[in-house]
Write a protein that binds this DNA or RNA. Sequence first.
DNA 1: ACTATACCTACTGCTATAATGGGAATAGTA
DNA 2: TACTATTCCCATTATAGCAGTAGGTATAGT
Lengths: 143, 143
Amino acid sequence: MKLSTRTRYAMRAMLELANGYGKGPLQTRVIAKNQDISTKYLEQIMSALKSTGLIRSQRGAKGGYILANPPEKIKLSDVFDVFEGPVVTVECVANENYCSRSADCVAKQVWGEVQRAVRNVLQSTTLQDVIDKAKITKSDYQI
Amino acid sequence: MKLSTRTRYAMRAMLELANGYGKGPLQTRVIAKNQDISTKYLEQIMSALKSTGLIRSQRGAKGGYILANPPEKIKLSDVFDVFEGPVVTVECVANENYCSRSADCVAKQVWGEVQRAVRNVLQSTTLQDVIDKAKITKSDYQI
DNA sequence: ACTATACCTACTGCTATAATGGGAATAGTA
DNA sequence: TACTATTCCCATTATAGCAGTAGGTATAGT
């Protein structure tokens, strides 16, 4: 159950944007360099983040991306869901009609609990929470 | 972050074995039929489960598989780990030297929390727990 | 005009997944 | 002994998704 690099890159990019929130747009190129990510690949990721409404863009020179909402309003689950779907698990948890065993299936319940555990962590934490945590634990922090 | 079908099949097969624990070996063919899984594919999965020591086999006619330990001694995480590795997340969480940002990386901490949440669910539940739950909620249960 | 940026589309190599298939070794049974 | 049901072992395949590359267009600032 690995995370895709897309999700990891997306999270790191969003944390960069959160960190620079209020200081104008941040460019893909800059984020890519800071995070040591392929610029071209990150471009696609930013595009996806934009299409879900998490970030806004400014085209042209001095353009870039900014968060669509303040970092304390963006939950980690918002970012996570862009590429990992509605979280973890199994088709049968989401779709009641997926399989004939559905009603009685206990395996389904197990995966449902795992799903809730993950969601609980990601929904109860905002980008701002993460930034704050970093500032507390490290003066010389990095994201 | 989908689960592989291997893991889902493995879990269902283990639950079948748990359900029939003490009644002699259960055959791949039977499990496959009950669970509507390709027999040949399940064969490989059973082989992997055996090689990790979770189940034992009896070859030849009237053979099959049995749990290596009673169902109350087998945690769901034992089954999960066979195919999903040491759980969720990201190389940098497991390997301290994976990336130069490691020491200060807050993204890493996020994924670490997710990992712990998942492990917590899977380590605190045994096969027997799941069977019991099914018996309570349904007289006509199915796994 | 020039430049830096977002934006768009297509392609590529790679790997893992989810099977399928054939057959050998083993053990019970008639 | 012959027969049969099983585990066991190995190879092959089709597909899909991931991660990344590439080239170009539209837009905005200077």
